[in-house]
């Protein structure tokens, strides 16, 4: 029999568990009865309440990216292309990945901790006893909320980031607002926007499902709550990078 190290074995086991958990999500998620109220509440919590943090980060990143790019662009005499370059960078990569990581940090940890504490305090068991399906109520609503709200957050963070970039350009030269956006959109195509938009659904799903899994199967009491919160952030962040790699490979196939 092939020897497999314990950590690899546990990683693969966890991966399998997450896959099974995801299957259950798809199996139960689209069957009635739907927990609409909880779903909208989760949408508000994971989406709307994440906007200030995501927006601030996006604005700063847009501004800083522009300022950092400028010396090199000036060196090569192509500073007129800064809006185009920043636009492509933000829309294709920086916006989605950065927002997803911030989202994983904020929402992944909160879901892991919330569900973990519910698990260790046996609230989930209590729900089962009372006839409420805890998977539908807790996991499906949260995962759907993260899956649907992250794309919206990414769109808004891209926009805010471009405003930051516009400010960054105008710190050194005078460029009107319409002209800046014209330069940005002149160099964007559908192949830049659509794959970047689609992959954010997967990022959102990864953050939600991993956070829920880590919390749902939390063990070791209060210590386990911290572990589940922490590991849900780490695992969802890694998942985001892996999904991003796959998404880039796929979108590259459609590049002209």
């Amino acid at each position: 029999m092939l020897y497999v190290p314990d950590n690899v074995k546990s990683f693969l086991t966890e991966l399998g568990e997450i896959a099974r958990f995801s299957t259950r999500f798809f199996r139960e998620g689209f069957l009635p009865r739907f927990e609409w109220e909880e779903f909208f509440r989760q949408c508000y919590v994971v989406g709307y309440r994440s906007l200030p943090l995501v927006g601030l980060t996006a604005f700063i990143i847009g501004l800083v990216l522009t300022m950092q790019l400028r010396p090199t662009m000036v060196y090569y005499g192509v500073e007129v292309q800064i809006p185009a370059m920043v636009g492509i960078a933000i829309v294709r990569e920086v916006g989605p990945i950065l927002t997803a990581l911030i989202f994983a940090g904020k929402i992944g940890s909160s879901i892991g901790a919330e569900l973990g504490s519910m698990k260790v305090t046996e609230q989930i068991d209590a729900m089962e006893v009372s006839g409420t399906n805890p998977f539908k109520y807790l996991v499906v609503t949260r995962t759907l909320a993260t899956m649907l709200m992250l794309p919206v957050l990414v769109i808004l963070s891209d926009t805010i980031s471009l405003f930051g970039a516009y400010l960054g350009v105008n710190l050194y030269e005078t460029l009107t607002y319409p002209l800046f956006f014209k330069k940005v959109f002149d160099n964007l195509t559908y192949i830049d926007i659509i794959p970047a938009f689609i992959k954010t659904f997967f990022f959102g799903f990864a953050v939600g499902i991993i956070g829920c899994y880590k919390g749902y199967y939390c063990e070791k009491g209060t210590e386990g709550v911290g572990i589940s919160a922490n590991s849900s952030v780490v695992a969802s962040s890694v998942a985001i990078f892996i999904l991003d790699l796959i998404a880039v490979q796929i979108s590259d196939m459609f590049q002209p």
């Binding site: 949408c43 989406g47 709307y48 906007l51 769109i155 808004l156």
Partner: peptide, 21 residues
């Protein structure tokens, strides 16, 4: 109020996406 805020939030994102496309 939360529902209204959520609606505005989602709608803004969708409008921007449609506008960009």
């Amino acid at each position: 109020i939360n529902a209204v805020k959520l609606g505005v939030f989602v709608l803004t994102g969708l409008v921007i996406l449609v506008f960009a496309l």
